[in-house]
Write a protein that binds this DNA or RNA. Structure first.
Ligand SMILES: [Mg+2]
Ligand SMILES: [Mg+2]
Length: 203
RNA sequence: ACAU
DNA sequence: TTATGT
């Protein structure tokens, strides 16, 4: 029989966490609607499971929803800790089975707003796909950056005049002028599909 | 209002 | 609650 004492993980309950006894765990769980919890054979296993979270092992929502994103694809996103930056951006490959892999990450670039970062991310994605010879679409959750891309120019009110941010914007616009938009650039439907996989999680 |  | 944008 199981004479070893179990350890309990509570993901959803009054106070989520890892508990050494069922008495403690049940207090977090009993009478709590939609509570999620499970027993593990050791403290280490329980803490690992708690860190992995409830969604561990399950494909992300975008891979399961009926009208999800086309795959394979490249998703991009930018993040800036402050209103005037500095912005960083990255690109994440999306595969049909729900796996993801970061393929580039740039910044933080001083003086660039989040919108400017979203724009640079799109141009970087187009360059990367072209260079790799891949015919994937690009997804962004930024309507602003998509609009700027169509116009071939980042219409930001905060354009740094010198430094790496200024250079990056000039280079991106120059590349766009030469090459146009050689891949489909599609809107990511955050409401239906969840946060874009390239998101930094800083919110 | 919408998106970030 | 602040800012970046259409
Ligand atoms: Mg974004
Ligand atoms: Mg984001």
């Amino acid at each position: 029989m199981s004479r070893r004492r179990k350890v309990y993980v509570v993901w959803k309950g009054r106070r989520p966490g890892v508990y050494d006894s069922w008495d403690e765990a049940r207090a977090q769980v009993e009478g709590f609607a939609d509570a999620r919890y499970k027993a593990y054979p050791s403290r280490a296993a329980a803490e690992a499971a708690f860190r992995r979270g409830l969604s561990a092992g399950q494909p992300p929502a975008w891979a399961l929803v009926p009208h999800g994103p086309r795959t394979p694809a490249l998703a991009v996103d930018a993040a800036a800790p402050g209103p005037q930056g500095p912005a960083a951006y990255r690109g994440v490959a999306l595969y049909p089975d729900g796996r993801t892999q970061e393929v580039f990450r740039v910044g933080p670039l001083p003086g660039l707003t989040a919108n400017a970062g979203e724009f640079l991310a799109l141009v970087h994605a187009l360059r990367w796909l072209t260079q790799q010879g891949l015919d994937w679409p690009v997804y962004t959750d930024s309507r602003i950056a998509r609009g700027w891309l169509t116009q071939g120019r980042a219409r930001t009110r905060h354009r740094p005049q010198r430094g790496p941010g200024a250079q990056a914007l000039r280079q991106a616009e120059a590349w766009l002028a030469r090459h146009g938009i050689p891949r489909a650039v599609l809107p990511w439907d955050t409401r239906a599909w969840g946060e874009i996989p390239a998101d930094f999680g800083h919110k």
